[in-house]
Design a protein around this nucleic acid. Structure first.
Ligand code: FES
Ligand code: FES
Lengths: 150, 150
DNA sequence: ATATAAAAAGACAAAACTGTCTTATTTCTT
DNA sequence: AAGAAATAAGACAGTTTTGTCTTTTTATAT
């Protein structure tokens, strides 16, 4: 598993919020965790962390909840991954050497860097809202689909 | 970190064994863990697991130790990763959906599969001995190099 | 003011991963 | 047969990740 569970839940929650919330439509944590099938309190912690980093907005009290404003919907997903799993995740040596560099490359460096750089590039150009498009249209999914018996 | 520590140590140990052992040159666990800078008993467990899967050979008793025969040196590294971290590792959905498929793709499926297939392909065609070449020549490294003060 | 609904925070618990220590077993040498 | 050197195996411990529960704080509506 390349991303942590925290990170997976974060991305799912953000996509759900992108589609279903805005400045004056807030979602509470029960609704969110039910929708993305994630553990409620754990998800709440993750969203709190994202609020601290200004990736998500929130308001307390009656009628409050979590939401994304238009600016937040355009944040690239890589930024979220960097916050939750650390900037190193996609820059680390595949064999765990302290520093991944072409100067002192490990035996899998070439294959590995090619892969991680490409992935990093792709994730840095996809915003939360771009990833949400397919989900809103029903062509992409953030929860497990029922087995269809054909 | 995409591979587990177990897997990192396994790959390093195999490369070290590929370069320094053969049917009648066996290495004991102290020598191996010192050379690859890994925790000795943990590494021993990992090698035992690889012995059970016939990736590594071992013999007990005086003059015994771990070693690779010529056939084992040609095992693709992906096979090792599959054993230690599970076949799923490089086939899993990046968002943790139970099944990664283009029929019910998650929002990052396209990017994700494109690169993980490439990596899997690359790792399936590199044998332990191929990865060892650079290390034997001194152009690749499996332990951290000292900081050079230039 | 009070009740209520919500996030925020903190303490705790379970599980997985990583690592250590001890004992058993095997094999070789003498 | 005895001793030594090695892997094999199992019990245990620390740490991190994942998840749960409870309390506090804040804002709104009545
Ligand atoms: S040095 Fe190992 S991946 Fe770059
Ligand atoms: S469905 Fe998520 S990566 Fe394929």
């Amino acid at each position: 598993m390349i991303f942590s569970k925290k990170c997976e839940y974060a991305i799912k929650a953000l996509i759900h919020l992108c589609i279903n919330s805005d400045t004056d439509t807030r979602l509470n944590i029960t609704e969110i965790s039910d929708s993305i099938e994630s553990p409620m309190h754990f998800t709440s912690k993750i969203l709190q962390e994202l609020v601290r980093h200004k990736i998500v907005s929130s308001s307390k009290g009656l009628g409050g909840g979590f939401f994304l404003n238009n600016q937040q919907k355009n944040i690239p997903i890589l930024e979220v991954i960097d916050i939750i799993d650390g900037k190193e995740l996609l820059s680390q040596c595949g064999l765990g050497l302290k520093k991944c560099s072409s100067k002192n490359p490990c035996p899998i460096h070439n294959e590995f860097v090619k892969y991680s750089e490409q992935l990093k590039q792709a994730l840095s150009t996809k915003s939360i809202s771009v990833l949400s498009l397919g989900v809103a249209k029903g062509t992409n999914f953030i929860i497990n689909q029922k087995e269809e018996i054909l």
